[in-house]
Amino acid sequence: MSYTTAITAFAALLDDESAAPAGLLHAERMRHYRANCRINRVAALGNTFATVEALVGEVFFAAMARFYVDATPATSANLHALGADFPDFIAGFAPASDLPYLADVARLDWACWLAFLADDAEAVPPAALAGFAPEALESLKLTLHPALQLVQSDHWPLADLLAMHQGGAAADINAGGQALLVLRADWQQIPPARFAMYLALQQGAPVLAALEAALAVDDSAPVGEWLGWLFASGAVTGIAEQNGEQS
């Protein structure tokens, strides 16, 4: 038996317990490996999607996560990197349909997770803009820190739900949609105009367009203050003029 043949036979038995145990001794013990692969992923998801798990309880969560794991082959050896599409799975998971906010809470958990683990990046200090004329901001683009994550629900009070699970008051699920930003382990609820502005910047819009996106939502939005906050918080890691020159 060649090396590749042996690995292929092993993998076939991991995928399907009824596959032929070609050349494998004690093939009945393959269930330990199948269980390990599954349980390791389920346990990791419980850690990553902690708010979802708290909402539905450990037993419901583990069962739901098992259905997801069985339906979704792992795409990384690093358990930290798995779960990006779990919110979409939850959105379509019939037994969770009584909890229509669950998928958005999962998106919040994933955003918190990405913010927490993002690579370190050097911040651009506010003074980096000292040499610029105001007109330059029309075409200036910012790179935002990967640890800054934005999440918004059209229907559900995500900030209230998160606060509730960090020891705050019980959330009123009918309080309406909320947006928030997460930066590393910290977060805050933000108004829709601020969400629109930061989202535009994150997606590569020039500063002026991002400010206008905020003002289109709320014409009295303090956009200068919000721009200043990004720099003051170390959330800007690059600035680039239209001609592509970066710093």
Partner: peptide, 18 residues
């Protein structure tokens, strides 16, 4: 990992030819 799919466990290597 095999054929594009990851298995989140430490699977023993077959000590066969190659």
């Amino acid at each position: 990992q095999h054929a594009g799919r990851y298995y989140n466990d430490l699977l023993p290597v077959p000590r066969v030819d190659g």
